[in-house]
């Protein structure tokens, strides 16, 4: 089949970017979207042009590396699917696809379709864990967890951190990502001791990163490859409101978002 890919090309954050049209004649409907880009890149390299940079790794929909907008929808038109598992048969012959990187102030641009999602790491760093050092654990069965609770925690824990929720949200909010981790750990008994502190600190970091606010419209869930439910955001709000009250005397600090890639400088 034939397709036209219109792709955002920009060498670095300082350069001026533009859309470039790439007509493709030999697209196999069995290919994944990323394999289609591989084929394009191969031909670009043969012509002496620089290939399109895009993030990818596992190519089975779990690592969360890949992701870009396909004609206005994060990860493309197929629900619950990352671009690496999106096969080309879901497009019509002759269709024109517009490929854009995630756009968010909190995801600084890197190159072509690649952005910097370290903000997510910093949100986890602020409290997305249970503070238990190696060797401190009691027997696995010493902490009973009801099946239903374990399942709900797993629903939230399935998040792959791809950033599609931020990309799709008209407000550029990271509420679904942050809520997913707060819900995962807040549902389980292991997460109870740090529940207030976790919510307050993660929300504070999310704020410091410059993400927008949630308006509860559900665009994030709609594009989420793992279909994380919107209720995780309610859970975050709940834990935050309780936490903000109970921890009102604590001083909460955040990390300044790093935007460059020069390591080791203070």
């Amino acid at each position: 089949m034939k397709l036209t890919l219109t792709i955002w090309r920009q060498k670095d954050p300082g350069a001026k970017g533009k859309f470039v049209r790439y007509p493709m004649d030999n697209v196999n409907p069995e290919m994944s979207m990323l394999e289609c880009l591989d084929v394009l890149n191969e031909s670009l390299a043969e012509r002496g042009e620089e290939p399109v940079a895009f993030e990818h790794d596992c190519r089975e929909g779990i690592c969360g590396s890949c992701g870009f907008m396909i004609s206005g929808v994060a990860h493309g038109p197929l629900p619950a699917t990352t671009v690496c598992q999106l096969t080309m048969r879901h497009f019509k012959d002759g269709e024109e696809l517009v490929l854009e990187p995630w756009r968010s102030r909190s995801f600084p641009f890197v190159k072509d379709l690649v952005v910097d999602r370290r903000a997510f790491d910093r949100i986890i760093q602020a409290g997305g864990y249970v503070s238990v050092s190696t060797g401190n654990a009691p027997d696995g069965n010493a902490i009973p967890v009801g099946k239903e609770e374990a399942d709900r925690a797993m629903d939230a824990a399935a998040c792959i951190g791809c950033g599609a929720c931020v990309a799709a949200c008209p407000n550029g909010s990271a509420a679904l990502f942050t809520g997913a981790k707060i819900a995962h750990l807040g549902i389980l008994p292991q997460g109870q001791p740090e529940r207030d502190r976790r919510a307050v600190r993660m929300v504070a970091q999310m704020h410091a990163e410059g993400f927008g606010s949630c308006t509860n419209i559900g665009e994030c869930t709609g594009v989420c490859p793992k279909e994380i439910p919107l209720e995780v955001i309610a859970r975050m709000n709940h834990d935050y409101l309780y936490g903000a009250w109970r921890e009102r005397r604590q001083v909460v600090t955040t990390i300044a978002p790093a935007t460059d890639w020069e390591f080791g400088k203070k």
């Binding site: 864990y129 249970v130 238990v132 190696t134 060797g135 401190n136 654990a137 009691p138 027997d139 696995g140 069965n141 902490i143 009973p144 967890v145 009801g146 099946k147 609770e149 374990a150 925690a153 797993m154 824990a157 995962h184 750990l185 389980l188 292991q190 997460g191």
Partner: peptide, 22 residues
């Protein structure tokens, strides 16, 4: 044996029986 204990304590949502055991 210790790995399972450590991971459970970290909050890894392993599959559970209705009674709450692993």
């Amino acid at each position: 044996v210790n790995i399972i204990d450590q991971c459970v304590a970290q909050g890894v949502p392993f599959a559970r029986e209705y009674g709450g055991s692993l």
